[in-house]
Design a protein around this nucleic acid. Structure first.
Length: 862
RNA sequence: GCCCGCUUGGCGGAACCGGUAGACGCAACGGACUUAAAAUCCGUUUCCCUGUCGGGAGUGGGGGUUCGAAUCCCCCAGCGGGCACCA
């Protein structure tokens, strides 16, 4: 029994594709283009399962579209700047550039071994000056266009390491390495004005009809446009004197103004700062708030705390009603005006706060079913609709009408203004790190901030840096930051911050169109290839990366770089690959292969036999070591089997708990197909022969199945149901095996077997490109399968003339009948009522109603 | 805490638009071939009652809409992702 020689075959076809330049893309105005892009990887050293899934999905689309006659662009590159390179530098004393370039080489070899149909001549790495010099130019253009500004913002500061920490590096409020309590610090940083496009980014979501609904919803909520009212409250100081200053709050629930029982400002609100100057206890409270890390999750999950400033805010409608003014840790300075009024009855956070500080809870919106006289709030705020109560002139109004009335009255006295606010904040792009794209500006003592002239680009990273000291190596490099001011020539200092790595990934898709051009983009190439027709990547990028890219594309358009708004016309978000996590007794993470599951169910360290605690299944991540190296599978079974297995059992958009159960089944299928064609049990007809005049019933059924399979698989690939596509081809090959075993001598069998196997091979080509090339050759074809058009289904064979109709009695299945497709109700009804099982179920009762859905169901109601 | 998803046999999943739940595969069990094993091939496999007749239950839990619900609506639970410096 011959075995398929994986290593030899896969290497052979990879070499052939490369020699012939099969996947090199060229602009061709006469052919429809199709740009398939998968999110490029961070070069962490080895490919992981998520990459295998992502790139297999993309390759199926790319190869399929190619076969369908499209001029396909399918490039690959490296998102090469980032924090892990610096962590590696500190741990292993290896330079980030060296580490990154070696990782790229290793991962490129791995990707090549997967047989992906990339145009490798377009490969880019964002850490090379060749790439990032264009980014520096863009930044200067954005600066000119008024899309960049500088302001102070908070960072996580590790006081022991003297370093800014990423949110990921803050664990329970402490630095991950030092264990020190993290502080918040204000630093001057660069921002890109993404908020200038808030409305556009929001409104354009509706046009992204080939994006998953959930991603659009997430972006919509992230932008968070809300129409509301800004209200000015008069203030009284501690001694009861009226203050000149007023407190401006923003609310979307102005209907509940009569239920207000306090006001609160953010800890970093100017009013809080001013009061703290004369109030040591308040200063201490603000300092405490500043110990919460910068992430929204940390702020919102912290216990709600406030400090009563002693100030009173005067209710705009109720004379003499004074609301205490707090500084509260859950009010965000970044949203609205950084100040709120609290209505505990109708906001959960306000309610928790009011309960903690003994503030009144007055319901002002009464649910439709409740009695206004007795309606009271318990543990939960009431957020629904209803009629206003306890609200003077608003009583009896619906929520919307009450909002309108409040807005009208406050506008009339100039103490309120309708405003639209957004949750979206401008994009802070400064990072106090070495391994990133230098921000091309110079700080001059006399001229201030001076952009680096274009002729001096790129500003390159110095290679001679050390990671012995904490902090940014650019900052303590002996010479790099010292330069002459481009404006006055006097000694000046370079900006030592680098860009957020999301900047590189916000335009790489356009760079792929002409990656060696001297300009950032070649306009003709970008106009031809962009937008990306199908973008594929993890759902974890649903907001940040995708939103930044949408913004960046608009910013580039404004600066004349390109002519489109939306970079990604179609988006497919794959589910994450998850795995259990393991920790030893000391709490150190363990790789799955270091862990052994004993027959008694206990889990131990494979080497020492010491107990291991098993954690929940979560996204595979190097930091938690719950990763499985795909290379072993590729080495053992080959790329095709790995690809087939990855696609087989699970729909691409669904999360996946990793298990290798089933890989043997994929491997068996590969070998079965190989044998079925290279050593057929029954002879296949000659290549290219005309269809015989007569086919046996069985042969004809398989012939029809082949065409149904073509139609089904094509639909499935277009709809990203790759698992279903694989299952369909398996059904076809099962039927072919049955035909060669049981009907080989029948009329037309040999011809149908050839047609069937050729069809299976062609349909499987996007999934298993090497095996199918080899089988195509074995079937006697001299041309590459990669250059062969996708098969066409004969529509007449796809639809049968008879259908099996389900027969129900009172909605319960009692039998089936074979009827003509699209047949009349009468014939179906007669056949159905004649069924013994139906008669029994009817039990002689009178038929009250018959529901007939042609080709599907006949339901008899008694 | 907030936003977005997901939940179907022992397991991964299928079921296009509300119309025969369990395609395809994994695992398991039984059999053939073999001195034996591997490989391969054939068969069984949602659960319960029962004589492979037939019947009943069943798509995370509870309720609803409908002739009919895995699918639509409401409530709840569990799990996963994101939360602006991981990428």
């Amino acid at each position: 029994m011959s075995r398929y020689n994986v290593k030899e075959t896969e290497a052979r076809w990879q070499r052939l594709w490369e020699e012939r330049g099969t996947f090199a893309a060229r602009e061709d105005a006469h052919r429809p283009k199709y740009y398939v892009l998968e999110m490029f990887p961070y070069p962490s050293g080895r490919i992981h399962m998520g990459h295998v899934r992502n790139y297999t999905l993309g390759d199926v689309v790319a190869r399929y579209k190619r076969a369908k006659g499209f001029n396909v662009l399918h490039p690959m590159g490296w998102d090469a700047f980032g924090l892990p390179a610096e962590n590696a530098a500190m741990q292993n004393r290896v330079h980030p550039a060296k580490w990154t370039r070696e990782n790229i080489a290793a991962m490129r070899a791995q990707l090549k071994s997967m047989g992906l149909s990339y145009d490798w001549s377009r490969e880019i790495a964002t850490c090379e000056p060749e790439y990032y010099r264009h980014e520096q130019k863009m930044f200067l253009d954005f600066l000119k266009a008024g899309l960049v500004y500088r302001k102070e913002s908070w960072v996580n500061w590790d006081p022991v390491e003297n370093t800014v920490l990423a949110n990921e590096q803050v664990i329970d409020g402490k630095g991950w390495r030092s264990g020190a309590e993290v502080e918040k610090r204000l630093l001057a940083q660069w921002f890109l004005k993404i908020t200038e496009f808030s409305d556009e980014l929001l409104d354009a979501l509706a046009g992204l009809d080939r994006w998953p609904e959930r991603v659009r919803v997430m972006q919509e909520n992230w932008i968070g446009r809300s129409a509301g009212l800004s209200v000015l409250f008069r203030l009284k100081d501690r001694s009861g004197r009226a203050m000149d200053e007023r407190l401006e709050i923003f609310t979307t629930r102005h209907d509940t103004l009569f239920g207000a029982s306090f006001c609160a400002v953010a800890p970093n609100h100017p009013l809080a700062g001013a009061l703290a100057a004369r109030d040591a206890a308040l200063a201490a409270f603000i300092a405490e708030c500043n110990r919460i890390a910068t992430s929204e999750a940390a702020i919102e999950t912290a216990e709600k705390k406030g400090y009563d400033t002693g100030l009173k805010a005067l209710h705009p409608f109720v004379a003499g009603r004074e609301l205490p003014v707090y500084v509260a840790n859950f009010v965000l300075m970044e949203y609205g005006t950084g100040a709120i009024f609290g209505c505990p009855a109708h906001d959960q956070r306000d309610l928790e706060f009011a309960r903690a500080y003994g503030l009144p809870v007055l319901p002002v919106v009464c649910p439709p079913a409740a009695d206004p006289a007795t309606f009271a709030i318990g543990a939960e705020a009431y957020l629904g609709d209803g009629r206003l109560i306890n609200s003077d002139f608003l009583d009896g109004l619906a929520v919307d009408a009450a909002k309108e009335e409040v807005a009208r009255r406050l506008e009339a006295t100039a103490s309120g203004r309708r405003e639209t606010h957004y949750r979206l904040r401008d994009w802070g792009v400064s990072r106090q790190r070495y391994w990133g794209c230098p921000i091309p500006v110079v700080h001059c003592g006399s001229c201030g901030i001076v952009p680096v002239p274009e002729r001096d680009l790129p500003v390159t990273l110095p290679e001679d840096v050390s990671f012995d000291r904490p902090g940014n190596p650019l900052d303590h490099h002996p010479t790099w930051k010292h330069t002459a001011c481009p404006a006055c020539g006097r000694p000046a200092r370079r900006e030592t911050d680098t860009f957020d790595t999301f900047v590189e990934s916000s335009w790489y898709f356009a760079r792929f169109c002409a990656p060696v051009a001297d300009a950032p983009f070649t306009r003709a190439a970008v106009d031809y290839w962009m937008p990306v027709d199908q973008y594929i990547g993890g759902i974890e990028h649903a907001i940040l990366h995708l939103l930044y890219s949408r913004f960046f594309t608009r910013a580039l358009r404004r600066c004349g770089y390109l002519g489109i708004d939306e970079p990604f016309a179609g988006l497919m978000t794959q589910g994450m690959i998850c795995h259990e996590t393991y920790r030893d007794e000391a709490g150190r993470w363990l790789f799955p292969e270091e862990v052994e599951r004993r027959p008694d169910g206990t889990v131990v360290h494979a080497g020492s036999g010491r107990p291991v605690s098993v954690g929940r299944s979560e996204k595979m991540a190097k930091s938690r070591k719950n990763v499985v190296d795909p290379q072993r599978i590729i080495d053992t079974y080959g790329a095709d089997t790995a690809r087939l297995f990855m696609l087989s059992d699970s729909p691409p958009d669904r999360d996946l708990d990793w298990t290798e159960a089933g890989i043997d089944g994929a491997w068996r299928f590969v070998n079965r197909l190989w044998r079925a064609i290279t050593e057929p049990a029954a002879p296949l007809g000659p290549r290219g022969a005309a269809m015989p005049a007569r086919l046996s019933e069985r042969a004809a059924a398989v012939h029809r199945l082949a065409h149904k399979t073509i139609a089904g698989v094509s639909d499935d690939i277009e709809g990203f149901r790759f698992n279903r596509a694989v299952a369909r081809v398996r059904e076809l090959t099962n039927a072919l095996a049955d035909l060669s075993a049981e009907g080989a001598a029948e009329a037309g069998a040999a011809w149908v077997l050839r047609e069937g196997y050729e069809t299976a091979v062609r349909l499987l080509n996007p999934t298993m490109p090497h095996l199918t090339e080899a089988l195509w050759e074995a079937l006697g074809h001299a041309t590459l399968l990669a250059d062969t058009p996708w098969p066409e289904a004969d529509r007449a064979l796809v639809v049968d003339d008879t259908v099996t109709l389900a027969v129900q009695v009172n909605g319960r299945l009692r039998g089936t009948v074979e009827v003509r497709r699209g047949g009349e109700e009468g014939a179906a009804r007669e056949a159905a009522l004649a069924l013994p099982t139906v008669k029994a179920a009817l039990g002689g009762k009178a038929v009250r109603r018959v529901i007939y859905v042609p080709d599907r169901v006949l339901n008899v109601v008694v």
